[in-house]
Amino acid sequence: MNKENSKVMAVETAVKRFMNDGSHISIGGFTLNRNPMAAVYEIIRQGFKNLHLYAHSNGTGVDELIGAGCVGKLEIAYAGNGKTAATCIRFRKAVQEGTLKVEDYSNFMMSLRFLAGAMGVPFMPTLSGFGSEIITAWGFSKEMRQADPEIPDDKLVIIDNPFGMKQDASKVLLVPAINPDVTFIHVQKADTMGTCRIDGLTFADVEQAKASKHVVVTCEELVKPDALREFPERNQIPFLHVSAVCHVPYGAYPTAVYHHYDYDAVYLRAYAAAAKDDDKFLTFQKKYLYGVPNHQGLLNLAGQERLEAIKADARTGYAVNMKRG
């Protein structure tokens, strides 16, 4: 196999190669947009357990991973998913039942934590959060933190501004770096070496990817490296950071990919309805997750009509007049 193609593999292979039980992982996207769902479903089907998941607001994928019992510890800013779930349903249930250890941060704090990891510094500073119980209430106890070398001993640290009153700040909050073992992202375009081009909002995908020991990219279009060397300023993640590239069209389904397809409100509603009841949820998972061999199986269940209905309009990048309510 030549060097150029050595990163190209099936998503099943990539998940098997880079994941372990207990891995520290993160996923890209935001609520119902560009979640790496093909990879998420594969992690679930391969049955990985006790994962340590870092999230800012990666709604759909986070709730599916929690619902499948893959996650032991979660560090998160926001668990909601658009109109179908003001609070992600399996997340809420797991926290209320005490089956999931959760540590709360804010979206800026989580984004900065990935940035710190990407930059190789132990923390980043911010002026957010003073007076909030995000700082004082710890989901992970001091003892638990000290017993686990992968987690910093402190959740957050406040220091006096070392530069006097610069920026009119008397104090600064330090947020600790995150370096996940693996980050999964889904992008519009990647080349065979792993360079990525994301259209639309990048959310925190770039920082998450650059903070991670391994990055698994799934993409709508897989192209030759030359194709992305024209207008390289449109690329956000160079191949250096990437371990695996998997060509998975509709790989973010049922979440949206700007200029490719919208989120599938029908699926998300069906998920939300099922997730409220344990038995119904198991039936739902048996059909859509465990009952299919791979992501194409889920797309087949969704059917051509649904995929057509969510197809992005060329001008706006989303499905105009799609029924969402």
Binding site: S57, Y78, A79, T87, S106, N107, F108, M109, T126, S128
Partner: peptide
């Protein structure tokens, strides 16, 4: 051990701080 768990801060804490 919450009776009801909500979504969490999201960007709310940051915005209210800034």
């Amino acid at each position: 051990q919450p009776d009801i768990r909500f979504s969490g801060s999201g960007g709310g804490c940051d915005v209210a701080s800034f």
